[in-house]
């Protein structure tokens, strides 16, 4: 509705509607959601619980199909999951019977890479997330932050052009969270990817993003889009700057003082 879909966008969500059948009614999880994400852009999505953030991500991941509308990636309609779209789940979703290394190699094995090649690639990403000492440890021996780093390495290893992250740091303590945010941005600046990052933390949303998408619930829709023109690298200095504070307040207001029935078109244009 607001954003006219263009063919140049890396990810293009076009008037997506998603309903779930309940006992004797239908529940509208997403209503006419349109969003373009440019190549190598880092977009964060915030919104109240139940506003359809995960649903939107699952549609892009190909784990759910929209009731109507299209999810387009690289100019092609999304049909099912694919290794070009890496997904990082809130619950880590590491295979508990595989070591860190084997977890990271999983996608490479599926892709048919030979053992030596797999090992070499896995080694690189293990090092990237700083898990060298735990390469042969099972997930049960890792802390939450280490598990999430392993999940990030596993997603990166198959070399996706898009990363979809659903509240990946949601279960972590504030300190680990900040560290991982900085590491994620570090990785992203070296290994550029198009990222859609879901969070319920306004600070996190602003700190990481080129653009913050604010969603509203009932029905799930895009409520506001806030451009974040803070400089990279995002340092502590940036986090403490007045500009950051202003953007944070703006997003905060959008999330916590939503006017019922307003969609992005009316709020931001």
């Amino acid at each position: 509705m607001t954003t006219t879909p263009t063919d140049t966008a890396k990810i293009s969500v076009r008037r997506v509607r998603k309903t779930f059948d309940l006992k004797n009614s239908e529940f509208v999880a997403l209503e006419s959601v349109s969003l373009d994400i440019a190549d190598n852009e880092f977009v964060t999505v915030v919104g109240p619980s139940g506003c359809g953030k995960s649903t939107l991500m699952n549609i892009l991941a190909g784990l759910e199909t929209p009731t109507s509308g299209h999810a387009v990636v690289d100019g092609k309609d999304v049909r099912g999951p694919g290794p070009e779209r890496g997904v990082i789940f809130q619950q880590y979703a590491l295979f508990p019977w595989l070591t860190v290394r084997k977890n990271i190699e999983f996608g490479l094995k599926v892709a048919g890479l030979r053992a030596a090649e797999r090992r070499q690639r896995a080694e690189y990403f293990i090092h990237m997330v700083g898990l060298d000492q735990f390469a042969d440890a099972l997930p049960k021996m890792l802390s939450g932050g280490m598990k999430q780093r392993c999940a990030i390495a596993r997603a990166y290893a198959v070399n996706p052009s898009i990363l979809l992250m659903d509240e990946p740091f949601g279960a972590l303590d504030a300190l680990t969270r900040v560290t991982l945010q900085e590491q994620l941005l570090g990785t992203w600046s070296r290994e550029k990817r198009t990222v859609m990052f879901i969070t319920h933390d306004v600070d996190e949303a602003v700190f990481l993003a080129n653009r913050v998408v604010v969603m509203a619930a009932r029905p799930g829709r895009i409520y506001d889009i806030v451009d974040v023109d803070l400089p990279f690298p995002r340092t502590e200095e940036v986090r403490l700057s007045p500009e950051f504070g202003e953007l944070r307040n703006r997003v905060w207001h959008s999330v916590y003082h939503q006017t019922p029935g307003v969609a992005a078109g009316h709020a931001s244009s």
Binding site: L63, P81, P83, V87, F89, A93, F95, F106, V110, A111
Partner: peptide
Amino acid sequence: DRTLINAARVLGARNGT
């Protein structure tokens, strides 16, 4: 766990795998 199956799917695994 559904998320484990989904994790495998998004890494490119098909049903047999």
